[in-house]
Simulated assay, not measured.
Amino acid sequence: MLTVQHQPVITADSPPSTPQLLLQSLAASDALLDGGWWPRSNDPVAELPGLVLALDEYRGPVHRVTLSANGWRSRPHLLGVAGRGLLPLRRGP
Rank of each mutant, 00 (worst) to 15 (best):
Y58I: 12
S14E: 10
R84H: 01
Y58P: 00
T3V: 11
S17Q: 10
A28K: 12
S17F: 02
V45L: 00
A82K: 03
T3L: 09
G71I: 08
G80Y: 00
H6P: 11
G85Q: 03
G36A: 15
G80W: 00
P16T: 02
Q7W: 13
N70K: 09
G50F: 05
P44L: 03
V65T: 03
L2D: 10
W38L: 14
P44I: 01
A31H: 08
A69M: 08
G50V: 06
P61T: 14
L87T: 00
P8N: 09
T18G: 10
P76M: 04
Y58G: 01
W37C: 04
V52M: 03
W72M: 11
S74Q: 14
T66E: 12
L67I: 01
V9W: 09
P93E: 13
L51Q: 07
T3Q: 09
L33R: 11
H77N: 05
S74D: 12
G50N: 08
W72P: 10
T66G: 13
T66C: 07
A69K: 11
T18R: 15
H6L: 15
L23H: 09
P39D: 06
D13I: 01
D43V: 03
Q5Y: 04
I10W: 14
P93D: 13
A46W: 01
G50C: 10
M1N: 08
P16S: 07
Y58F: 13
D56M: 08
E47P: 10
P39G: 03
G92A: 12
L22E: 14
T66K: 01
G71D: 10
R91A: 13
E47M: 09
R73D: 12
A28W: 12
G36P: 00
D34W: 00
P61G: 13
G36D: 09
G35D: 06
G92C: 12
R40F: 00
Q20W: 10
H77A: 13
Q7A: 15
A54R: 07
I10E: 13
A31E: 15
L87V: 02
G60Q: 08
L26S: 15
G83T: 05
R73F: 02
Q5A: 12
L55P: 07
P61D: 14
S68T: 11
P39Y: 02
D30P: 03
S29T: 13
E57P: 02
V81R: 01
W38M: 09
D34N: 10
H6R: 14
L78Y: 02
G80I: 01
P76Y: 02
P8V: 12
A46T: 09
W38F: 09
M1I: 08
A28D: 15
Q7D: 14
G80T: 00
L48M: 09
H6T: 14
L32I: 02
